[in-house]
C-alpha cells in the first residue's frame, strides 16, 4: 500500500450474526474506498445505509466480516489498540462522563491514551479554546447545552492529536445555530490539515464540508465523487419544484412527461419535481400548458436530488 493512503478498503462487508428472532443481517455489502491525508471524506445515506457499521470497522471497534481493511497501514484485526491510539472518534451519542466536569472529561479521556498528566493539562487549554468552552471548564457536563456537549465530545476526540477523526452524524439533533457553530469548528480542523471522515444524512452538511463523498444505500456505495461531480453526473443543473393539490400530482406528472418537459419528472408526496437545465424555461412551459401550481420554485440541484435519482428515495424519511 502506498504511504499516502490513510485508509484502504476492498470488498468490505459487515454481517451481524443471527440472534434470537433476528436473522443474520448484512449491514455493509462489499464496499471499496480509499482516503488520502488531509481529505474530508463523507458517507452520505439514510439511516440504516451501513454508515455507522462502516465507521465502527474503521475505528477498529467492530471486526471486519470479509474483505480487507487497512487503517494507517495497519490491520484492525491485529493492531486495534495501536490504530485506536492514533485516531479520534466522535460517536453518535456523546457518552460523556456526566458526573465529571468539562475539564475532567478531557483529562480522563487523555489518560485512556496513556498521555502524561502535564501533556494532557497543556492540551486541555487549547482544546477548551477550540471548543469555545473556556468559561465552562469547571462546570458539570450536566449543565451544558446540546451544542456544547457536542463540541466537548469533539474536543475529547482530539486529545490524542489524531491523524484521522471519525465523526458519526456530528450535527444530528442540534438546532440550526448550534450546527453552524459546529461546522465552523470542523472547517478549522480541515484547515489545520486533520483528515476527517464524516457520516451524515444531511445533504447540506455533506455539500459544505466534504471534499469527496460516497453515497451509501442498503450497505453499498452507489456513487462516489466530489459534491459537484455527483450533481453534474447524476442530475440536471436546476430543479423546478411544483406544488399542486396532492391528489392531482400523479396526473400532472403524466402530462409533464407527455410534453417531454425537462429530463426527468419525480413525484414526491408533497410536490412534483422537474429536472431541467433551465428551470425558468421549464416553468414558462408549465404555464403555457395552462397548469397553475399553488407554488413553483426554481433552485439549483443538490445532493438530495442525486440521492433521489440513485435510490428512488429521499435521504430523510
Amino acid at each position: 500500500m502506498s504511504g499516502r493512503l490513510l485508509v484502504e478498503a476492498r470488498g468490505l462487508t459487515k454481517t451481524y450474526r443471527a440472534r434470537k428472532g433476528v436473522p443474520p443481517f448484512r449491514a455493509v455489502d462489499g464496499i471499496d474506498f480509499e482516503l488520502g491525508r488531509g481529505e474530508v471524506f463523507g458517507f452520505l445515506g439514510p439511516n440504516g445505509a451501513g454508515k455507522s457499521s462502516t465507521m465502527r470497522m474503521l475505528g477498529a471497534i467492530s471486526p471486519v466480516s470479509t474483505g480487507t481493511l487497512r487503517v494507517l497501514g495497519m490491520d484492525p484485526a491485529h493492531e486495534g489498540p495501536e490504530i485506536r491510539s492514533r485516531i479520534g472518534v466522535v460517536p453518535q451519542d456523546d457518552c460523556l462522563d456526566r458526573e465529571l466536569t468539562v475539564r475532567e472529561n478531557l483529562f480522563v479521556y487523555g489518560r485512556y491514551f496513556g498521555l502524561a498528566k502535564n501533556v494532557i493539562r497543556d492540551r486541555i487549554v487549547g482544546l477548551l479554546a477550540f471548543a469555545q468552552l473556556e468559561e465552562k471548564a469547571d462546570a458539570q457536563v450536566e449543565t451544558l447545552s446540546g451544542g456544547m456537549r457536542r463540541r466537548l465530545t469533539i474536543a475529547r476526540s482530539l486529545i490524542n492529536e489524531p491523524e484521522i477523526l471519525l465523526l458519526d452524524e456530528p450535527t444530528t439533533g442540534l438546532d440550526p445555530q448550534a450546527r453552524h457553530v459546529l461546522w465552523d469548528r470542523l472547517y478549522r480542523l480541515k484547515r489545520d490539515g486533520v483528515t476527517l471522515i464524516i457520516t451524515t444524512h444531511y445533504m447540506d452538511e455533506a455539500e459544505q464540508l466534504c471534499d469527496r463523498l460516497a453515497v451509501m444505500d442498503a450497505g453499498r456505495i452507489v456513487a462516489e465523487g466530489s459534491p459537484r461531480e455527483l450533481i453534474d453526473a447524476h442530475v440536471t443543473r436546476e430543479v423546478l419544484e411544483l406544488r399542486f393539490q396532492p391528489d392531482v400530482h400523479a396526473e400532472v406528472a403524466e402530462r409533464l412527461r407527455a410534453a417531454e418537459l425537462g429530463e426527468r419528472i419525480e413525484v414526491l408526496p408533497d410536490r412534483v419535481v422537474v429536472y431541467a437545465d433551465d428551470g425558468e424555461v421549464a416553468l414558462v412551459a408549465v404555464h403555457e400548458m395552462s397548469l397553475s401550481p399553488i407554488t413553483a420554485l426554481v433552485r439549483r440541484a443538490t445532493l438530495e436530488d442525486v440521492f433521489l435519482k440513485l435510490t428512488g428515495r429521499s435521504l430523510v424519511d
Binding site: 475505528g59 471497534i61 486495534g80 489498540p81 495501536e82 485506536r84 491510539s85 485516531i87 472518534v89 460517536p91 451519542d93 457518552c95 460523556l96 462522563d97 456526566r98 479521556y109 485512556y112 491514551f113 496513556g114 475529547r156 471519525l166
Partner: peptide, 14 residues
C-alpha cells in the same frame, strides 16, 4: 444509561 463504554471502546483500551 450513561453509555460510558461506548466512549471507551474507541480508545486504546481493550
Amino acid at each position: 444509561t450513561d453509555r460510558t463504554y461506548d466512549a471507551i471502546v474507541p480508545t486504546p483500551l481493550s
